[in-house]
Design a protein around this nucleic acid. Structure first.
Length: 433
DNA sequence: CTGGGGATGGGGCCC
DNA sequence: TGGGCCCCATCCCCA
């Protein structure tokens, strides 16, 4: 269009320069034009997609979207992403195309799309198998070793909803380049707005085509995703999960490619309203900080441990709430009669690491009229109760194992408890998700 | 087995 | 941008 339009007007030779993407990226596109093979990697897919958008090559655009989508589809919450740090951050030297299952298995992390007609016939079935049950199976396979009796039920609604969120990506993702690429001629953040389809209709069209794996320009050609069997997927997951487990949301947030800007609809003045899209699910947020917080639910990162019981939380406020309700008896409610109780009308009792309040009436019913003076002097509002013993009593042995620390709001450490069987189990539970 | 309530997780949004 | 609050959904324990 550029060349023909310019030559019509000026009848002079026209030179088109493409400064918004690198020669390597253009080489990938050019190879596709001549060979029908698109060499996509986790490293280049973003820039190739941006270039394809700029060049209005919707075919490549769809391939890139399918590539990314397939990468996200095999992910579960605990698996993070197949565009793993190794494939995204490290330069991929292996440029060979995937043509066979064996090849895919030999180097599954380096995924390429081969628009090779020879492999088209079997790929559709493989793909449908892959996309229909691989994520289900993987989630089960991956969850089972970690599950506990307190863990979420396998078929729970919550799990199902989360899985749907991961696999149903119909958003049109609009990419802007990494900051590091801005100087090398890639599109900048501001330019990314111009890269979007020219009309709202086109956006909807793109979103609607998202689910297809047909390659539109050639009816015989089909997109060939990573063609793995379940066993191969398990192998890949067992290989990739440990390195992903080390990834923190902060690191992920700063190191991941800037797949952030998405169209969040349109303002009243017909300007695009930007939101930030999670690269691992369809969730979008208004603010980058919220995205950073949201990423923790994908990384599984729980940076706030309760030093009383070892349970870990994704947010400080959750830890605080937990600590206040569980270990500080923050609620002024009698655990038995549910009536309002104050320091004058009741006491704080302790059961293991848990503390809660009982009114004097309920205390009397439980036979706790007499409290040793030494304990009362040291902790006038605390009655310690054994974990397993239903009778109300003072557990001196337990008390000797528990080092009480002042309940300062700024210092959430109140106890240092020797590891018992129950406690060690309790410490493991928070990390099971 | 079931319903209620506490504990927890996550999103929106204000400061 | 981070901290914090509020709200709601879900999970899970217990009566």
């Amino acid at each position: 269009m550029l060349l023909s339009q310019s030559s019509k007007e000026t009848s002079q030779p026209t030179t088109a320069t493409f400064e918004v993407f690198s020669p390597d990226t253009f080489m990938v596109i050019l190879d596709f034009v001549y060979s029908g093979k698109l060499s996509l990697t986790g490293q280049n897919v973003i820039e190739v997609m941006s270039a394809a958008s700029y060049l209005q090559m919707t075919d490549i655009l769809n391939v890139c979207k399918t590539f990314i989508k397939s990468s996200l589809d095999i992910n579960e919450k605990d698996h993070y992403f197949s565009l793993s740090p190794s494939s995204m951050n490290s330069e991929s030297d292996n440029t060979s195309l995937y043509r066979s299952r064996r090849k895919a298995k030999s180097n599954p992390a380096h995924s390429l799309f081969a628009l090779d007609q020879k492999t088209n016939m079997t790929n559709e079935n493989l793909w449908s198998n892959f996309s229909s049950h691989s994520s289900e199976q993987m989630s089960v396979q991956q969850q089972q070793p970690k599950s506990s009796k307190r863990g979420p039920k396998p078929g729970s609604v919550r799990k199902r909803r989360r899985r749907l969120r991961l696999s149903q990506s119909h958003d049109f993702m609009q990419y802007k380049s990494d900051k590091s690429n801005a100087t090398s001629g890639s599109c900048s953040a501001s330019e990314s707005v111009n890269y979007s389809p020219q009309s709202k209709e086109q956006i909807q069209l793109d979103a609607g085509n998202d689910s297809t794996h047909e390659y539109p320009c050639n009816q015989e050609s089909k997109v060939v995703p990573k063609r793995w069997t379940v066993a191969q997927l398990e192998e890949e997951l067992s290989r990739t999960t440990p390195e992903c487990m080390d990834l923190k949301a902060d690191e992920l947030y700063t190191s991941m490619p800037a797949i952030l800007g998405v169209m969040g609809g349109w303002n009243e003045d017909d300007l695009p309203r930007m939101r930030f899209k999670c690269p691992f699910c369809t969730h979008t947020v208004k603010r980058r900080a919220d995205l950073k917080r949201h990423l923790r639910c994908h990384t599984g990162e729980r940076p706030y441990p309760c030093e009383a019981c070892g349970k870990r939380f994704t947010r400080l406020e959750h830890l605080r709430n937990h600590f206040q309700t569980i270990h500080q008896a923050g609620k002024l409610i009698c655990r038995k009669c549910k009536n309002h109780v104050t320091d004058e009308t009741g006491r704080v009792v302790q059961q293991g690491t848990r503390r809660y309040r009982l009114c004097y009436e309920c205390l009397a019913e439980a036979g706790l009229d007499s409290i040793p003076d030494d304990l009362e002097a040291e902790h006038p509002l605390i009655i310690a109760i054994g974990d397993k013993n239903p009778s109300w009593h003072l557990d001196e042995e337990q008390r000797s194992d528990v080092e009480m620390v002042e309940d300062e709001p700024d210092n959430l450490v109140i106890q240092q408890i020797n590891d018992s069987a129950d406690e060690s189990e309790e410490k493991v539970k928070p990390n099971l998700r």
